[in-house]
Computed example of a mutant assay.
Amino acid sequence: MTLDMTMADTAIQKSVYLPAPRKRVWEFLTKADLLNKWFHPAQKDLAEGEDYLLTSQKDGDRMCWGTVQEMSPYDYMKWSFTVGPMNGAMTTVEWRLEDAPGGTKLTLEHSELPTDSEGYGLVLALDKGWHGFLLNLHDMQ
């Protein structure tokens, strides 16, 4: 199966409200030991301009990878992002952190997703995955 990975308006957008300050949420988005608690194990802390690799907690297999394209601590981060089914095609994941009463509003936008009907299954899987991972952040300590 070949997926149409042309840039388009297909995007996943999700927000979650977390009872923690932006600095703490940022640490969960960027620190290897904390990424492991809610998402996937990272080889190292995320840093602007550097590649990242997140692996499976079960067997250490490669789950997702790309490059951290931009970081503005406690406010914004942008990644290039791919997973195995994308066959190396890159998408974009953006994270926005905003103050909210009692904590932080974290917004994820995953864009440049497949535009064809064959790729829709991948979009659904990514949507479900992001939903679950963001819910995991409610358990941050």
Rank of each mutant, 00 (worst) to 15 (best):
M86D: 06
Y52P: 03
M140P: 00
G119L: 07
H40I: 02
F81C: 07
D99M: 00
L124K: 12
G129F: 03
G119A: 09
K105C: 11
W79A: 02
G49A: 08
Y76G: 01
Q57N: 11
T91W: 04
S117A: 13
P101T: 09
T92W: 06
H110Q: 15
D45M: 07
P85L: 08
G102K: 06
R96T: 15
L35K: 01
K128R: 12
Q69D: 11
W65K: 10
V25C: 01
G84V: 11
G103L: 05
V68L: 10
A47Q: 13
A89Q: 03
E70P: 01
A11W: 00
M71N: 00
G102D: 06
D45E: 08
M7F: 13
G102H: 05
G84P: 11
R96F: 05
L29H: 03
R22I: 00
K44V: 08
D45L: 04
Y17R: 14
M71K: 01
K23Y: 06
G88W: 01
P41I: 07
L134F: 09
T91L: 07
D61V: 09
A100R: 09
L46M: 12
L135N: 13
W38N: 08
T107V: 08
D116F: 02
L106N: 02
D45W: 00
M1V: 14
W79G: 02
L134E: 03
M7W: 02
M140N: 10
L97A: 05
W38E: 07
T67Q: 10
P85N: 04
A8Q: 11
W38L: 05
L18Y: 07
D116V: 08
E109Y: 05
G119E: 03
T6C: 13
L124D: 09
S72L: 14
P19I: 03
D9K: 13
T55C: 11
M1K: 11
V93S: 06
Q69E: 15
E94W: 04
D9Q: 15
P73W: 10
T91K: 00
M71R: 01
L97K: 02
T91H: 05
L113N: 02
E98D: 13
G60R: 06
A20N: 05
P101S: 13
G103P: 07
V68E: 03
L108M: 14
R24C: 00
M90C: 05
T115H: 09
E27M: 12
T6H: 15
W95M: 09
W79F: 13
N87V: 00
M5H: 04
T107Q: 10
W65N: 12
K105Q: 10
A47Y: 03
M90Y: 05
K105M: 09
V123C: 10
K31S: 12
R96C: 06
M77S: 04
D9E: 15
M5G: 06
R22A: 10
K128H: 14
E118N: 10
V25K: 02
Y17A: 12
G102Y: 04
N36F: 00
M5W: 01
P73E: 12
F81R: 04
T107H: 11
K37F: 01
K23F: 04
E112Q: 14
Q13N: 14
W95D: 06
K23A: 14
K128G: 13
G132E: 13
N136Q: 15
G49W: 08
F39Q: 02
T104L: 00
L108A: 05
H40P: 00
L46R: 02
L29G: 03
L46Q: 04
